[in-house]
Amino acid sequence: MATLTPGPQWYLFDYGMVISTAPEEADWQVLEEAAGLNLRQTDSAYWLHRLQYDEGRLSSRDYWTRVVGSAVSEGRAMELDSLDAIQWSHLNLDTLDVLDLLSSRTAELAVLSNMPLAMADEFSSAAWTRYFSQCFYSSRIGKVKPDPGAFQHVLSALNADPAAIVFIDDKAENIAAAKALGMTTVHHVPGTDLLRELGL
């Protein structure tokens, strides 16, 4: 269980695999059919170029051109972006329960997610965003986790001390980076009881 510091707190949530669940088999199938190749393997072009896309260094067309291996039109890039957003849109109901509880206690909530601009735009009015007063997306700040610069951007924007932030993320390297800056961290892996970890 995380040892929480007293006083005002920011709860800083990752999106993928924390607020959302993993893409489902059917989602991958639809996206792979549209792209014309297998994408879900960890060594696929989808993942190989993902951090550059998340960081905003690749446009949608540039990213999907690299993924597919041939030039794509603006329309096709938009279609693939839409299907990609759909597969990451399934919400973790247990996390939503935690967000409901924290929100009822008027806790300060923010998101820090590695997310391409097209997906950030797609989710800008999603129902889950109502819980958060601030949403930080890598493509908009030009830094991806675990780069300390991503966390420094959040600290500056929130005008918060690291010790006043509880960071929840599924990736060990992101947890390590946040912890090195002095944040309290919760490593959210399958089976994590977030209510218990946060002492709620």
Rank of each mutant, 00 (worst) to 15 (best):
R105Y: 03
R105E: 01
R105I: 00
R105T: 03
T106W: 08
T106F: 12
T106Y: 07
A107D: 01
A107M: 08
A107G: 06
A107K: 15
E108M: 06
E108G: 05
E108V: 03
E108F: 02
E108N: 13
L109K: 02
L109Y: 02
L109S: 08
L109D: 04
A110W: 09
A110C: 08
A110V: 02
A110R: 09
A110M: 11
A110H: 12
A110L: 07
V111F: 05
V111Y: 10
V111A: 09
V111H: 06
V111D: 00
V111W: 05
L112F: 12
L112H: 11
L112Q: 12
L112P: 09
S113I: 14
S113R: 11
N114Y: 07
N114Q: 07
M115P: 00
M115N: 13
M115F: 03
M115Y: 10
M115C: 11
P116R: 11
P116K: 11
P116Q: 12
P116N: 13
P116F: 03
P116H: 13
L117W: 06
L117V: 02
L117C: 03
L117G: 09
A118T: 04
A118M: 04
A118Q: 09
M119P: 08
M119G: 08
M119C: 09
M119F: 05
A120M: 03
A120Y: 10
A120T: 14
D121N: 10
D121C: 09
D121Y: 08
E122D: 15
E122R: 15
F123R: 11
F123T: 09
F123M: 10
F123K: 12
S124K: 14
S124Q: 15
S124F: 04
S124G: 04
S125G: 07
S125F: 12
S125T: 15
S125A: 14
A126D: 13
A126H: 12
A126L: 08
A126K: 07
A127F: 01
A127V: 14
A127P: 00
A127R: 03
W128L: 08
W128A: 05
W128R: 02
W128F: 14
T129F: 05
T129Q: 13
T129H: 12
T129C: 06
T129D: 06
T129G: 02
R130V: 08
F132E: 13
F132R: 15
F132K: 14
F132H: 13
F132W: 11
S133C: 06
S133V: 02
S133M: 09
S133W: 00
Q134Y: 15
Q134I: 00
Q134N: 12
Q134R: 15
Q134T: 13
Q134A: 10
C135P: 00
C135R: 14
F136S: 04
F136N: 06
F136V: 04
F136C: 01
Y137S: 14
S138W: 09
S138F: 08
S138H: 05
S139R: 06
S139V: 03
S139H: 04
S139T: 02
S139N: 00
R140C: 02
R140F: 00
R140T: 01
G142Y: 05
G142V: 00
G142F: 11
G142W: 04
G142P: 03
G142R: 12
